[in-house]
Design a protein around this nucleic acid. Structure first.
Lengths: 100, 100
DNA sequence: TATTGACTTGTCAAATATTGGCAAATATAA
DNA sequence: TTATATTTGCCAATATTTGACAAGTCAATA
């Protein structure tokens, strides 16, 4: 499993028949960087997600979900206690929510 | 929710009637740092978890779980798509496991 | 096979983020 | 007050991530 987010934006970009060189400048980066992002070798900045969502006519929430999932995965990948940690974290999230 | 890991090691330390100044040197840090770690203002290094587990006579797996949960929480805290992201990440973890 | 265009990869300095260490502050008890 | 334990603030040191560029691969095709 590489990068769900990267794979997704690549697919979306290809569906729109856009080249890296067309999309990259809209995100103020060069094609090399965007290529790495699509391959999961770099992370897009969180605040750029709404921007790329608009460029690719995709749901910002969906892209954000994949982007966050990649971040989480990076933390627990190869960890023996991954599932247990996820359970604990999930509990914390929901507790925080309830408090608001 | 601050730091599950920090709260846990503080509780364990107090149960053993140990002072920061006694534990910190065993982790090659000063009391200020350990204090911050217990309060969730700093992260213990991943590789030090087995060490502190031994010092505090606790389960390394349990501490690792809490430590990882803190890292995950840091990623998704305040994120609208937190729960969705957790679901996606969990799926990825289990897929990776199956492949091994 | 030479050229072109799209994409990829490697490197490295610059920008960011995190940590370590110290000193001073606070807190509590005697 | 003094002593001890812990906390906080600061900033330099260290580590990590990013940006930019050059050179590389690959596929299509003239």
């Amino acid at each position: 499993m590489k990068s769900q987010f990267g794979e997704k934006i690549r697919t979306l970009r290809e569906k729109q028949n856009l080249y890296l060189r067309q999309v990259a400048p809209l995100l103020e980066m060069d094609t090399a960087q965007l290529s790495k992002i699509e391959k999961g070798m770099r992370q897009l900045k969180r605040e750029q997600i709404p921007i790329i969502a608009e460029i690719l006519k995709a749901s910002s929430d969906e892209l954000m979900t994949l982007w966050l999932a990649d971040q989480i995965y990076a933390v627990v990948k190869d960890e023996k206690m991954a599932n247990e940690a996820m359970q604990v974290a999930e509990k914390n999230i929901n507790q925080t929510k309830r408090k608001k």
